[in-house]
Amino acid sequence: MLQVKNKSFRIGAAITLFMLLLILVGTFWTPYDPNAMSAAEKMAAPGLRHPLGTDNFGRDILSRVVEGTRATFLVALCSVAIGLLAGLVIGGLTGYYGGWVDELLMRLNDSLTAFPSLLLALVLIAVFRSGKYSIILVLGVLFIPSFARIVRTEVAQQKALDYVRSARLMGVRDMRVLFVHILPNILPVLLSSVAIGFNNAVLAESSMSYLGLGVQPPDASLGRMLNEAQAYLLRAPWYALSAGLAVILLVLGFGLLSEGFGGEGRA
């Protein structure tokens, strides 16, 4: 079903697997408690005890990078899931049935995509109050229009194809046609969009947390850590570098994967 091709897919898969492994291990074990402070070990340089050193509260940076990656990953995952599910339902129904509802929703969709997502996130976060769950919700809502649009276009195209026509002629119920017959056929395009959406979510989460609107301290998130690390650029450049590298690896891995899923998806 999926055309798994080229080298970039393999590299992407390797990076993503590595990050997933890191997140999985981090869920059960980190070298130190990522939030535990120690007055005796503030701003320690990388060494045997702390491979990436400690921050201004004496917290272990490696543990925090792992924990931050996990937090960023989960936020991205959940928000893409929200966007995808809502997008599937809205896009599927409007694409399948068409009509004035379709027209109206797509017009609304156009207007919403006119706002750069970051701008909309800034406004929305002021409504929902900042925090980890708000950011998931805000980003999730933000992703609905783009997913809905992709699903709608694909469904509308598939609808005209012979296999759907014959299924309908045979009296298969609409919902079954939509989700059992059409869905698997638009999966490749969808998967690629999911990967791209995921990357946008990672970037959006880290940007928002960098501005102080996402994950709240003392909890770690990659954007939050980048903000904190900025003051210590000269004394502890590894702090910013390790958090930045984690963002890049997450995005790079999924970016390469999305190509592997076949072609340029949009999101």
Binding site: L203, S206, S207, A240, V247, I248, V251, L252, G255
Partner: peptide, 10 residues
């Protein structure tokens, strides 16, 4: 490919 993954603020 690597540069594509850089967040602008980083």
């Amino acid at each position: 490919q690597v540069f594509m993954a850089f967040p602008p603020f980083f």
